[in-house]
């Protein structure tokens, strides 16, 4: 198929994509280890997913099908514009259907629907260094990773329990990958942390500003850090989704009017829509 786009396929030039792919291979070979890469300028501001976009651009093939989510939703500004970006520069098929996608770029969520081993999930990462909170020096954090000095990671969790009575870190919750590297899983809620453990899909992480790549290959052991007497727990809600009635998905609280009335809905918009459609079909079937 001739490439009708005015851009090189997926915007980046072939050499840039190759260097990023080389970095990704290294990242996959050393799960959880941060690999520096020569980040390129992208036509979007840092903080909008420049890292994720570069990873997506370098792994995308002409027959891939791309889905982009932001806050779990397919129709927020960031998701729509990145999807259109690749629609325009790579002429690839795009979708909002989790199952149909081969590459999914995400900002805050891992889709509710379990991913399969022919899918790749690309994360946009703001701060790749989990030790940054406690150690501002880059050379020192590199040394701490090299020597596996991860005791201080628990200082943050200790502070949480001391001040809030429980581990109050709810997103970017640090994980121990393959029994070796401590990794920041980007700002996904800790609700999604268990989905990374023994995941069928390949998980790639790109940080544009800090120019770091890291990865969790399929079927890798991923453990969330915790204390013996305060084990890791995921968020739970008393409500169920107001639209689809789901009781086990990650819920967003939405204020619906000026009176401050609120409702809880699934943050994964495609997942919610599917369930609503399934319900409608069922009720139609009953009527017929």
């Amino acid at each position: 198929m001739p490439n009708q786009s005015e851009y090189n396929f997926a915007y980046l030039d072939e050499q840039s994509k190759r260097t990023i792919r080389r970095g990704l291979l290294k990242a996959v070979a050393i799960p959880g280890h941060q690999v520096p890469f020569a980040g390129r300028e992208m036509p979007m501001p840092y903080g909008w997913g420049t890292g994720g976009v570069q990873v997506t651009a370098s792994i995308l093939g002409a027959d891939d099908c791309l889905k982009v989510i932001d806050q779990g939703s397919d129709d927020t500004t960031n998701a729509v514009s990145i999807r259109r970006f690749f629609d325009k520069t790579a002429l690839v098929e795009t979708t909002t259907d989790t199952e149909a996608a081969t590459v999914i770029q995400t900002r805050h969520r891992i889709p509710e629907q379990p991913l399969t081993n022919n899918q790749i999930l690309v994360f946009q990462v703001p701060i790749p260094e989990p030790l940054r909170f406690i150690e501002p020096s880059e050379s020192e954090t590199m040394k701490m990773h090299a020597l596996e000095e991860y005791g201080v990671m628990h200082v943050k969790l200790y502070e949480d329990i001391a001040h809030h009575g429980h581990i109050a870190t709810t997103y970017a919750y640090p994980v121990h990958v393959n029994g070796r590297y401590v990794m920041d899983p980007s700002p996904i809620p800790k609700f999604d942390n268990p989905k990374m453990h023994m995941s069928d899909a390949l998980l790639l992480f790109g940080a544009g500003r800090e120019k770091r790549l890291y990865a969790i290959p399929p079927y890798t052991d991923v453990k969330s850090l915790d204390f013996d007497d305060h084990p890791f727990e995921i968020q739970q809600w008393d409500q169920s989704c107001a639209l689809c009635g789901c009781e086990h998905s990650f819920l967003d609280e939405v204020i619906v009017n000026d009176e401050g009335e609120r409702m809880f809905v699934c943050s994964d918009s495609h997942f919610c829509q599917q369930r609503v459609n399934a319900k409608l079909n069922m009720s139609e079937a009953v009527e017929v």
Binding site: G151, V152, H154, Y158, E159, A162, F227, D229
Partner: peptide
């Protein structure tokens, strides 16, 4: 906090019980 300051070395040598 003071507690975390004192606890840090304990956690650094592997203490995992809050």
């Amino acid at each position: 906090s003071a507690g975390a300051n004192i606890g840090e070395r304990l956690m650094a040598v592997g203490d995992r019980h809050y």
